[in-house]
Nucleic acid binder design. Structure first.
Lengths: 193, 193
DNA sequence: AAGTTTATTGACTCGTCAATCAACAAAAAA
DNA sequence: TTTTTTGTTGATTGACGAGTCAATAAACTT
C-alpha cells in the first residue's frame, strides 16, 4: 500500500515521535522500535529513512532548534527598539512551542548528547552563538561594555531555567520562568539607564 | 590476596572511577566493566559491592552532592553578615572540587538520570531545596519580599552556568563563572540597598 | 506488459552488557 | 587446624537492541 511521497511524512512523524519518546522517557535510552511504533511504522522503516538512530536524534534536535529559532524570530518581528527586542528574545525563548514538557526534557537530553556527538555539539554551538550575538547586539546601546557579560548571563539563566523546568513536576510554568529571566534583564538595564 | 577492610576502599575507588568515567564519556552509557577497570578491579567485584549499576550511579551522585555541600559549608564558615554569606554560597558553588570538567559533566548526566530514577530525583531535590532555602534566608534582610524570586533566579543561574561549562571546551573557567553569578547578585542587591 | 522505483515489514544476525555463579585465596575465629 | 568470613575473578547466562536483508506490493515509467 505504498502511497507515494511518504518520505517527508514519515520523517516528520519520526522526528515528532522521537521528541515525545525521549521527552517521556527522560532519557536517550529509548529504542528505535519504540520511536517507530509511536510513529506508526516498523523499526526497519525508520532505519530505511534515517540510516541510524544517531541520525534520527540529530533530526529531532534540529527540529527543536528550528522551532526555537522560529519562536524567537516571531516574537522579534513586532518589536522595535533595543529594550523591546531584548524582551522579545526572552519571551521567544519561552514560547509555547518550545517550553513544553517533552520538548524541554528532550532538550536536556540533546544537551547531553552534544557531549558525545560532534554534530549535536555543532548545532548547539550555533544556537548559543546566535542567541548570544543577538542579545549582545541589543544590549550594546543599553549597557555598553557590559553587553558581553550580560548576554552570557542571560543565556546561562535561560538554560538554567529550562533545566529546572525539566526536573520540576507538573506542567512547566511559562509565566514564572519568563518572570525570572525578565526581572534579571530589568535589573541589568535599570542600573545603567 | 584479600587485604581485609577492602570494602570502603573499593567503594570509594568505584565512586571516583564512576565520576571520571561518566565525566569523560559525557554520558551515562558507560559499562560497569569500564568503571571497574578504571578502579582496578573486575566488574564482578563492582557488582559484589554495589549490587547493581544503578546503585553505583547513586553512590557517585551522593558523593558529588556531598562534595558540593562541603564546599559551600566551608566557604560559609568564615562569612558573617547576609551579603558576605550570599557571596560565600555562590563562591562555594564554584569550588575547586565541584567545578571541574569530569564533575560538571557527571553532574549534568546525573541531572538527566534524575528524570528516570526516583532516588536520584530525590537527592537533587534535597540539594535544590537546601540551596534555595539558604539563599532565601540571607536574601530576606536584603531584598525583602523579592527574596524568593531572587533565590530561584540565582539557583537557576548557577545551574545554567554549570551546564554551559559542561559544553565549553577546554578547562572550565571558574573565575568567569563566578563573576557572572556574582554580578547578578550585586545587581539585585544594589537596587534595594 | 514488462521494468523500475518507492514503500514496507518480518525475520534474522551479531554484538554488547548487566548480572550471576562457581571456584579459589587468604585472613580471622573457633 | 578446621571452619567461617571476606575478598576476588573468569566464565557464563540471558536479554535486549541496532542494523541488515530478502521478500512483497503498489505505484509509475516506457
Amino acid at each position: 500500500m505504498p502511497k507515494l511521497g511518504a518520505e517527508p511524512i514519515r520523517r516528520a512523524a519520526l522526528v515528532k515521535a522521537t521528541i515525545e519518546t525521549v521527552g517521556e522517557a527522560g532519557s536517550l535510552e529509548v529504542t528505535v522500535a519504540q520511536i517507530a511504533r509511536r510513529a506508526g511504522m516498523s523499526s526497519a522503516l525508520a532505519h530505511h529513512y534515517f540510516g541510524s538512530k544517531e541520525q534520527i536524534f540529530l533530526a529531532a534536535m534540529r527540529s527543536i532548534l528550528t522551532l526555537y529559532g522560529a519562536e524567537v524570530r516571531g516574537a522579534l518581528a513586532t518589536a522595535t527598539g533595543p529594550e523591546a527586542r531584548l524582551r522579545a528574545i526572552v519571551a521567544g525563548s519561552f514560547g509555547v512551542g518550545s517550553f513544553r514538557r517533552e520538548v524541554i526534557s528532550a532538550w536536556l537530553n540533546f544537551y547531553v548528547l552534544s557531549q558525545t556527538q560532534p554534530e549535536a555539539r555543532r548545532l548547539l554551538h550555533v544556537y548559543q552563538r546566535r542567541l548570544r550575538s543577538n542579545l549582545r547586539h541589543e544590549l550594546r546601546p543599553l549597557v555598553g561594555s557590559r553587553a558581553e557579560a550580560v548576554a552570557r548571563g542571560l543565556g546561562a539563566l535561560i538554560d538554567g531555567v529550562y533545566i529546572r523546568a525539566a526536573l520540576a513536576e507538573g506542567a512547566p510554568d511559562r509565566r514564572y520562568a519568563l518572570k525570572i529571566v525578565t526581572e534579571y534583564l530589568e535589573r541589568e538595564l535599570e542600573g545603567q539607564a
